[in-house]
Design a protein around this nucleic acid. Structure first.
Lengths: 243, 243
DNA sequence: CAGGAACACTGATCTGCCTCAGTTACCGGC
DNA sequence: GCCGGTAACTGAGGCAGATCAGTGTTCCTG
């Protein structure tokens, strides 16, 4: 019997060659399909007993709120991404999750996840790999914010998003649809919305990228990669490590 | 037979209750003890077929180098920490690892690690948990650099280090030994060394912390926690999740 | 014991980005 | 067809933190 693979299963399968049994265990996690409207948080910082989710469609962002009211967006998740793993592993969530658009996602109860880990241990290794890839992205954002100026940072961010979307078939080297406002971009890049606006204008006037009307168009990929010092190695890999 | 637990085993055991068998599998990973002098990198960005290491004594830092020569330190590792997991999982390392002091560590070959994962699958869950905790720290650094000013950021950093060291018995709420130079601090905090110096002076003059002669002394913990908006929840947890 | 390498520390100047305070454009609702 | 909300966009002014160019101290080494 051939199973129609979810994007999530495809992603994990790229790292750990999965048996039919493991595949179907993965599919069972998809039984609780839910829909979330844009804007209303799915998970809140400090909440306990949270579920995890596998994103089927739409975009979400995970962010942290500071006591002074400002927020830092840690990352955006796109279809095929797993979110809220830490909320389950630590029993309480250390971040908020907000849908950027309308979102369809499969809820994965903590118990179901841990049971699945127990019964199909190779899946844990696969999830460990996925989590490490996520960590690599967070590290790259850290470098962005710590050592790249606003222009490089923005360029790097747009390139990373493009590369990720391309991997799940939602974009090409020419561009992609992007539902993020300049405010969201600002919160992710550690900049003010005003400055994001100016930087986007500069990038546009330099003929590198345009980001208008929910569409990112890459006009000079090479120059952009050079500006951002972008190396997509951390998103890719060379086929299954575990066979 | 009672096994003398390594700090690493103790850390994992706090999350997943480990059997004797799992414990001894963990101990086997400690067979290749190595010593590294301060300053010479243990792992280089882009290197393939790297080993992982379990830190027994000394401090190391993991950092990324940019093409313009500047660097961003992602995190420091202290005794009991596992390092280089991503280098193994992705076959090639995306960061450098430099010993800050003389370091004793157990080398864990990629093959041995994956074999151990295969034979004692519950250890994978434990490692997944440890990796998630590391990710939570990186996320906190991201927030530091993105949304906290230099003073808050420095305070937060010193508090986090203190909390981590306390967990492995290397410090108290009063202070701890810290072998980091102001240059290293600067590279970690996304600041210039000059500014780190000024910030440390301000914190000292405000009677909050002193960091002199390799010693951090916390004089007003409450005020420091308030300044930094520090919440140690992401470092802690409430006992084994898996029994 | 001179010479050099680290590291801590300082003052002066410059700048990237923030904040404030707007204007303009678009879209959906009544 | 106006009104309120949301997002893009702009100019002026201010400041946190960078950069530059040092000084002083300790410690190591030849």
């Amino acid at each position: 019997m051939t199973v129609l693979q979810s994007p999530f299963a495809r992603k994990l399968g790229a790292f750990v060659a999965l048996s039919d049994e493991e595949m179907s265990a993965l599919d069972k996690l998809h039984s609780r399909r839910k829909v979330f409207p844009a804007g209303r948080d799915m998970v809140l910082q400090g909440q306990i007993k949270q579920s995890a989710y596998i994103l089927a469609s739409g975009w979400v962002c995970s962010y942290k709120l500071l006591s002074d009211g400002s927020r830092q967006i840690v990352d955006f998740q796109i279809p095929g991404d797993f979110l809220g793993l830490r909320s389950v592993l630590f029993r309480t969530s250390d971040h908020n999750i907000e849908p950027v658009t309308r979102v369809e996602a499969s809820e994965v109860l903590a118990k179901d996840l841990l049971d699945t880990f127990d019964k199909t241990p190779r899946l844990v290794t696969a999830v460990l790999w996925a989590a490490s890839r996520d960590e690599a992205m967070v590290v790259e954002h850290l470098v962005d914010i710590g050592r790249r100026d606003a222009k490089e940072r923005t360029a790097h961010f747009l390139l990373e998003l493009g590369a990720r979307l391309k991997l799940v078939g939602l974009g090409s080297t020419l561009g992609y649809a992007c539902p993020l406002s300049q405010y969201l971009l600002a919160d992710a890049l550690g900049l003010s919305a005003v400055h994001v606006n100016r930087v986007l204008r500069e990038l546009r006037e330099a003929g590198l990228v345009t980001f208008q009307h929910g569409q990112v168009e890459i006009h000079d990929l090479d120059a952009l990669v050079r500006l951002a010092d972008f190396d997509k190695a951390y998103l890719d890999h060379d086929g299954p490590l575990l066979t």
